[in-house]
Design a protein around this nucleic acid. Structure first.
Lengths: 201, 201
DNA sequence: TGGGAGTGTCAACACCGTTGACCGAAACCG
DNA sequence: CGGTTTCGGTCAACGGTGTTGACACTCCCA
């Protein structure tokens, strides 16, 4: 086992810090937010984050315990879907797809890629499934009707993730080059049928 | 730029090798196949592969140019879906889902995870989209009817990838714990509707 | 007046992928 | 047959990674 298996001693809780500590913590978090989003999890090294924050690399680990923990505290695991999901249920499929096809969200692609990359680390993966269950699946379930509501909601989210993977990780030319309205209609309706099968034609 | 950006000098084509070279190449490939499948792309180090093959780590790079190239030559990017896709089109959705839910394929999960991990490296990613387009999408397209045939086939594959990600990478407890027949019915039919929308109820 | 706790610095560890220098043996060729 | 090129392999090293231990300094509190 290479790293991080022992109990590493982290800084105390942020609410009992001295001003100096709080400032450098904030600087490190800010630098990490920028570099993780820009270069992905593997591409942003602890040393680069420390340099960006004007700080010794060891301090990064001292304060946050590990690179993985820093990533978890830093990166916004939510992708801003919350407001989309809360909208009218009958059109949520198309609206979800349209949201991610909107080219006016340039940072979104990089954020998703960073998350997908980091998903291969245990702590990050666990946080992601927790977050997905809590903020995507859970609010959907009580609004559904019929059988297997939780399973259908989870599968709908998985289907959406499949599109994001194709778009952002694979950068598939077929879908990227296709007419956005067509993709929204076809794939959005497919997601919609998982959520509200009775409303399908 | 860290590695592999220059033109690295690789061994000559395998068909004009001396017997010794051919043997060690085979040993390295065999060791790589085992370790990549077992530990994933990042988890299997060049040094570990070399040790498993009883060979100097430098030889691995000498023969294959880079770890990424070794991965490409080694790992079977196909997941065995070919025969499933070639079956009757009217039931391909459920059969695809059923294929990946079959617990009798223990190596499949690890192979997929290794591929997903390595997908963040450029050469591997390009080979994957090429392979996907060639062996999954292409044979499907001519059998479809209606509009946007290529796009629908690509989206169906993306939807399937979404399930694999949920199952194998995220290891989501909801889907893993659900009744396989239910998942096959719900998600399989959803994929089927992308491919043959006119045959839906 | 201590003493601990928070904060920061530095060098080092063990690992990673990769490369350059060098050597022996085999193959080709005049 | 001798010479030269190529191939196969070994070794040490480079620059990079995340992380840790030893140490010094400063602040606050008993």
């Amino acid at each position: 086992m290479p790293y991080g298996c022992g109990v590493t001693k982290t800084s105390p809780a942020p609410d009992q810090l001295r001003p100096a500590g709080r400032a450098t913590r904030a600087a490190i978090e800010a630098a990490a937010r920028v570099l993780f989003a820009d270069r992905g999890f593997e591409g942003a090294s602890v040393r680069a984050i420390a340099a960006e924050a004007g700080v010794d690399p060891a301090l990064v680990i001292r304060h946050f315990g590990s690179k993985e923990a820093l990533f978890l505290r830093t990166v916004d695991t939510s992708l801003g879907i919350g407001s989309v999901i809360e909208g009218p249920l009958e059109t949520v499929g198309r609206r979800l797809v349209a949201y991610f096809l909107d080219p006016a969200l340039p940072g979104l692609r990089k954020r998703f890629v960073a998350l997908a990359q980091a998903a291969h680390h245990d702590q990050v993966r666990e946080e992601m499934v927790r977050h997905t269950a809590e903020t995507y699946v859970a609010p959907l379930v009580p609004r559904l009707t019929g059988e297997h509501r939780e399973l259908r909601a989870a599968l709908a989210v998985a289907q959406l993730a499949g599109l994001l993977n194709l778009l952002f990780v694979q950068e598939d030319p077929i879908v990227s080059g296709a007419d956005p309205e067509t993709v929204i209609a076809i794939y959005g309706d497919a997601i919609q049928r998982l959520l509200t099968p009775e409303s399908a034609a």
